[in-house]
């Protein structure tokens, strides 16, 4: 790996954001922004231009899926969805690079990142 991946994460639970940030850091990624809802996530993508997004689905104000749809209009950033709910509907799958059901482990997350971003 030559450069560290720049990742924005979104989850309305502080502990999960905190945990993911530290874990991503351990596996060699930089978390360049943290959002607590979809709207913040869209903003961060515009300002930070991350390489990858890891987001929850159900969040206040705007869901992770809706945010992914908005982001896809202006950016080509892979979006990995990590949710405690079942897989989103097929028509929404087009906007996401991967879906992982919580709880996921460090190796699960690493594998998903590699799939979404093979040069990582």
């Amino acid at each position: 790996m030559t450069t560290r991946l720049r990742i924005v994460i979104a989850d309305d639970e502080d502990d999960i954001r905190q945990g993911f940030r530290r874990l991503l850091c351990k596996i060699g990624c930089d978390v360049v922004g943290e959002a607590t809802n979809g709207r913040e996530l869209v903003k961060l993508c515009s300002s930070e231009h991350p390489d990858l997004v890891i987001t929850d689905i159900r969040m206040p104000e705007m869901s992770g899926i809706d945010a992914a749809k908005v982001i896809s209009k202006t950016h080509t950033i892979p979006v990995i969805v990590v949710s405690s709910h079942e897989r989103p509907a097929a028509e929404d799958s087009a906007y996401i690079a991967d879906f992982l059901l919580k709880p996921i482990s460090g190796p699960d997350l690493e594998a998903a990142i590699t799939r979404a971003f093979p040069r990582f």
């Binding site: 502990d15 999960i16 945990g19 993911f20 351990k26 405690s84 919580k102 460090g106």
Partner: peptide
Amino acid sequence: AHESRNALQRIQVSVDVLQY
């Protein structure tokens, strides 16, 4: 199950971080 998944995720991610 849904609510637990979030709690389990918090345990999991903390365990994963601590393993490092």
